[in-house]
């Protein structure tokens, strides 16, 4: 308590000045185990503060609303890395800055959203579709109609992610239309379909997506695969679907933010996360898949073999969310605003 008092007093007196051994992380909710953060602090003496967000778009909006220069690293999804780079929000580093750079899995090294990995390193990757409570609905769930044209049992009991990219991409997959579409008739149809579907939804929420399934407030919900695995582990009888129309695959990446107040500490943190044992610790906690080689010996068997992480053989390929140009994006923004209003 005494130590706490002195540090707090120092903080109060020093105001918002940034001490030497600090790191400010802007991260997704419930995505890094506290033990791992403590381990990093123990190894480096750097204290870590974590703020959380619940969608890529919210993170971007918040950074642009005066939070740039306050955080060192953030963890955007693939398409958001590209958008942030385009907005000039990212700083670059050289592979030599990160001794563990060579641990990045080869297929995640030269990615289209950050060619040559100049500002980002892989964090975890996974998929987004939906889960259904099998106590409530026993039929076939291998279709996105569960969310967009739900059966009677699920109507009014569906939670949808509060995330523009994922909702609009899944809806496009359901309708069989391409992403970054400029065909107005098709976009109108997409918008109409979503507005009609919304009548059957109970709530929008990303950080609540697991809890509503566990508590039974929702019987079906759009969700990330690892989050669904955690819901199942917490006792919900939910099954994660790999729908026939397709689903979203994503990779979250740790990026170095421009004007990072603690750049060296940020690089130390990124290097730390590229260590296979540490990457595996995140995987064991969040139940997704690491983008680092050599994690296998450290993984819990239950995570490695979970149905959420291992799509059935006949599942279609997943799609990454595409980045549209500003004009096209405006159309999608209009659809989302119209849906949310």
């Amino acid at each position: 308590m005494k130590r706490l008092l002195t540090t707090a007093a120092a903080l109060v007196l020093a105001g918002p000045a940034f001490a030497e051994g600090e790191l400010k992380v802007y991260h997704w909710f419930e995505y890094i185990p506290q033990e791992l953060v403590d381990k990093f602090t123990a190894e480096t003496g750097i204290t870590v503060t974590i703020d959380t967000y619940d969608s890529n778009e919210a993170m971007l909006a918040s950074l642009k609303a005066g939070r740039m220069g306050q955080y060192d690293v953030a963890v955007p999804g693939d398409y958001m890395v590209q958008i942030m780079a385009g907005e000039g929000l990212l700083d670059t580093f050289a592979p030599a800055d990160l001794p563990n750079f060579g641990n990045i899995a080869p297929q995640w090294l030269d990615v289209p959203f950050d060619p040559g990995r100049q500002s980002s390193i892989p964090y975890q990757w996974g998929s987004t579709s939906f889960s259904v409570n099998r106590d409530v609905y026993q039929g076939d769930i291998g279709t996105l109609a569960m969310i967009f044209d739900p059966p009677e049992e699920l109507k009014g009991k569906i939670n949808v992610l509060d995330s523009q990219g994922e909702v609009l991409t899944l809806a496009s997959l359901y309708m069989g239309i391409p992403q970054c579409n400029t065909d107005r008739e098709q976009l109108k149809a997409l918008s109409d379909m979503l507005v009609a579907a919304k009548a059957h939804w109970a709530s929008f929420g990303s950080d609540t997506a697991k809890d509503v399934l566990v508590s039974g407030d929702a019987a079906a919900g759009m969700i990330y695969n690892g989050f669904s695995a955690k819901a199942r582990a917490e006792g919900a009888n939910v099954e994660y679907a790999y729908p026939k129309e397709g689903f979203v695959v994503w990779m979250d990446n740790v990026v170095l933010l421009k004007d990072a107040p603690n750049r060296d500490n940020a690089l130390a943190f990124m290097n730390f996360l590229l260590d296979p044992e540490n990457a595996a610790a995140v995987t064991n906690y969040a139940a997704y898949t690491a983008g680092v080689t050599g994690v296998a010996p450290f993984l819990d068997a239950a995570i490695a073999e979970s149905p959420e992480n291992n799509p059935p053989a006949d599942a279609p390929a997943g799609s990454f969310i595409e980045v549209c140009d500003a004009e096209t994006q405006k159309l999608y923004d209009a659809i989302w605003t119209n849906l949310k209003k």
Partner: peptide, 12 residues
């Protein structure tokens, strides 16, 4: 107001 006058949001 704080954004416009350029005060970093925080404790103060």
């Amino acid at each position: 107001f704080f954004t416009m006058v350029g005060i970093t949001t925080g404790y103060m």
